[in-house]
Amino acid sequence: MTAHEIAAQVRRQRLLYRTLTGVLAHLALSGVAVLFIVPFAWLIVTSLKPLNQVFTDPLVWLPDPVMWSNYQEALTSPAFPFMRLLGNTVIYAVASTAGTIVSAVVVSYAFARLEFRGRDLLFGITLATMMLPGIVTLIPTYLLFRWLGWIGTYLPLIVPLWFGSAFNIFLLRQFMMTIPVDLTDAARIDGASDFTILWAIMVPLIKPALLVVGLFQFMASWNDFFGPLIYLDEASEYPLVLGLYAFRTRFGVQWHLIMAASLVVTFPIIALFFAAQRYFIEGVTMSGLKGS
């Protein structure tokens, strides 16, 4: 064999090896993917079945007939006042997201750019509250809002978020620290106030981080179950997830309709994820920054 032939053989072997490991990788990846997809698929399939095909032996894999009308039935059921629930959820999610962003921007700017006495101590306290389990503040906070007469409204769920949350302050502060000081100093020399600097220079530069903070708060509020459960009492005030729970309590066995409603409640978040996937993944990854 000439050197040329040997080289060719090595190349072939390497190619074979790479193809083989590639195939194995895909086999493993897709095998696991099936485990994750099947429950989802079952949600969709069940939501399109007539009731008598939900629990059968042998299983019905594909509904016959396909009951698109399940969606209509679920969304127009008086037990699941969809438009009302949706409106409540959107108000909750938008108001809490706006508050989270505004307060985190303002507070994190002070930590990132202003020099004042007590900064390190206050920042230390902020970091410490990040690890604080919510459970220890739950009951006095509830009693505080009850004293204010806010039970049965969204105020306890929204108002605190307008005053800042430790993790978002931390996240935006880290982000602002990466913006060159020269940029803000130049504006300061030109006589810009801190509010102007924050609004006109900082905010446009940290937009990706704001999007991450906003997305996660929106999702957290949309999916929030515990908060609405303890603070709201009238069904007409419920957000979607609580409405979904109440729907199930009243129609315990109508699984086809419950699955249709579940999918509708989940869908906007999944759509949002696909629209902003990069920011979602960055956001989760950034939350890991705390650890390293």
Binding site: F36, P39, F40, W42, L43, M219, W222, N223, F225, L240, V241, L242, L244, Y245, R248, I258, M259, S262, L263, V265, T266, I269, I270, F273, I281
Partner: peptide, 14 residues
């Protein structure tokens, strides 16, 4: 990652 996005009520009902 997708299942992590589901509201807990919806995923538990499923």
């Amino acid at each position: 990652y997708l299942p992590s996005l589901m509201p807990v009520v919806a995923s538990t009902l499923l």
